[in-house]
Simulated assay, not measured.
Amino acid sequence: MDWASVAGIVLALAALLLGHGMEGGKFASLVQPAAFIIVVVGTFGAVLLQTERHTFLRGVHMLRWVFRPPESQRTRLARDIAQWSLHARRDGLLSLEPFMLKSQDKFIQKGLRLVVDGIAPDKVRGLLETEVTAYEFSERQAAKIWESAAGYSPTIGIIGAVLGLIHVMENLAEPAKLGSGIAVAFVSTVYGVGLANLFYYPVANKLKNIIAETVTQYEILTDVFHDIAGGDHSRVIEERVASLLSRA
């Protein structure tokens, strides 16, 4: 569990509620189901309209990374690379096949398969770079749904406020209801702007950082597979491992 993310959400909500209360506001005045439906459902409807279904579902599935981010694989990868290098030098490239079959990572499986099949080093690099580019594009498109939600949410909040004001205008004959009606109308704006800046944008940025971490690892692995396929000196591969661990 990433307690920093949990603390961030709690702190943001506490600041809003505490500030609202210090100004004499009541918590109940911020609880407006109609405004919530307009803003949240409307926002994700707009996002879904611009996004392919599988990309949208992938982005929603990524939300769990905010609170349970993937564990860093750098130390394990460094250990695996050392084993691949040792076996390749001692027993030849075919000895890497058991590692390929054992791995659960599709990128590592592909890299080892290319090396075992005797593909030329430059071809190995080119194919794996294409794989990394495709992975990064796909994952960033999925994470982008939260950035898009942050863009749409404030505007839809304003739409909700306007709809509320329309309802207020329909009750001008009852002045006693105008004040509370206007307050309810503007709750939609609070929802829209608040969700965009306190949730959607932070989620999008955190997901992009996680994706960048994985892409960095894959880029280093691309160099490693190139070096192993080319039979480079172990010192070269040790430098790759050092760069992998430098930010662990």
Results as ranks from 00 to 15, higher is better:
M1N: 05
W3Q: 08
V6M: 03
L11H: 10
L13K: 11
A14R: 00
L18E: 06
F27P: 02
A28W: 04
S29L: 02
Q32H: 01
Q32G: 00
Q32Y: 03
P33G: 00
A34V: 07
A35N: 02
F36P: 01
V39I: 08
V39W: 05
F44P: 02
T51F: 11
V66C: 06
F67K: 13
F67T: 10
P69D: 15
P70H: 02
S72R: 04
S72T: 07
Q73W: 01
R74S: 11
T75P: 07
D80G: 14
W84Y: 14
S85N: 09
A88M: 11
A88C: 06
M100N: 07
M100V: 05
D105I: 02
L112P: 15
A120C: 10
A120R: 14
V124P: 14
R125A: 06
G126S: 00
T133V: 06
A134T: 03
A134K: 03
A134M: 01
Y135Q: 01
E136Q: 03
E139N: 08
E139W: 02
Q141F: 03
A142F: 15
A143L: 08
K144F: 15
S148I: 12
S153R: 12
S153H: 15
T155D: 04
T155Y: 05
T155C: 01
I156S: 07
I158G: 07
A161E: 12
L163V: 09
L163N: 13
L165F: 13
L165A: 07
H167R: 13
V168P: 04
V168Q: 05
V168F: 07
V168L: 05
A173F: 05
P175F: 12
K177C: 01
L178Q: 00
G181T: 03
T189R: 13
V190Q: 09
V193Y: 10
G194F: 07
F199I: 02
Y200R: 02
Y201S: 01
L207W: 12
K208F: 01
N209G: 11
Q217A: 04
Q217E: 05
F225H: 06
H226W: 11
H226R: 14
I228P: 06
R235F: 08
E238N: 13
V241T: 15
L244I: 06
R247C: 02
